[in-house]
């Protein structure tokens, strides 16, 4: 059964237009009302008793809300640089950018850098690029390799951390650090994005304060390089998950979970 996200009432098709919403919740909107079971955003809205977020927010309302958010990006490669760009464009107020590496020519096939930035620290190059998109986004940069202690130190005042590392052991480190030691912080992570095609196998899994994007299996290797489209898809899924957390609840910073309050 499909439900209208605005009224929770059953609907007949995949999309209801506003005229079909029984309580006329969408009367001021010309957009269609999307079914709850299509996207993660609408599913979380279905659980949110306070209606009026997400699909029902204007661009100004969304930007006003995001302007107060501070998000950490751990790793500024294909995932982190593209995720940060999507967040900056969306209007996130403040980003903490951390990476130890410099831009290399080989990065230009998928990462949000330019040829004249080869040799620059990624944190600095990305800050330049994001400022060109939106000079008002507040940026804190650190050129260093993150370990568990530094994760806590650098991101202690971020409501959400985006895991955008390359290596699986580093992914495990930051996920476990956040879940164990940062009880009020969300971790949005990625696993499985190599190669091309099979878009339908890419999905988002939620478990308490952990959101995991990717197909969960395709590992980068000599025969499965990371390519711009799939890396970009997962990077933008991570950015979308951040928006979902920030826009789906007033209490995103007090460890409210999307999955019905489970830790």
């Amino acid at each position: 059964m499909d439900y209208c996200i605005a009224t929770q009432s059953p609907g007949g098709g995949r999309i209801l237009n506003y005229g079909a919403c029984k309580q006329n919740m969408l009367s001021n909107y010309t957009m269609v009302c999307q079914m709850c079971n299509i996207s993660a955003v609408s599913r979380s809205l279905q659980m949110d008793e306070r209606l009026g977020y997400g699909m029902l927010m204007t661009r100004d309302e969304i930007r006003k809300r995001l302007a107060h958010a501070r998000v950490g990006i751990a790793g500024l490669g294909g995932l982190g640089s593209n995720c940060a760009a999507a967040l900056a464009r969306s209007g996130i107020g403040s980003l903490v950018l951390v990476d130890f590496d410099i831009v290399s020519e080989g990065n230009l096939d998928r990462q949000f850098y330019f040829r004249d930035q080869v040799g620059m620290p990624k944190a600095r190059a990305l800050a330049d690029n994001l400022s060109r998109i939106d000079p008002s986004v507040r940026l804190e940069t650190h050129i260093e390799k993150l370990d568990a202690d530094l994760v806590i130190k650098r991101f202690h005042d971020c409501g959400i951390i985006v895991e955008a590392f390359d290596q699986a052991d580093a992914k495990k480190m930051i996920i476990e650090t956040v879940l164990e030691h940062m009880p009020d912080t969300w971790i949005v992570a990625a696993s499985g994005l190599a190669g091309f095609g099979e878009f339908e196998s890419i999905r988002k899994i939620r478990s308490g304060r952990l959101i995991l994007c990717g197909d969960g299996k395709s590992e980068v290797g000599p025969d499965a390089p990371p390519l711009a489209p799939r890396v970009g898809i997962v990077a933008c899924m991570e950015a979308d998950a951040v928006l979902e957390i920030l826009l789906g609840s007033e209490d995103a910073f007090v460890s409210r979970t999307i999955q019905g309050g489970r830790q």
Partner: peptide
Amino acid sequence: LVERSSYDTQKVVDGDEVEIYHLVSGG
């Protein structure tokens, strides 16, 4: 969360809900 060092000792019993996520490199 179950720490890696506890995989040999941590027990699961009837009715438990277990989540296991596979991390692969790439990013």
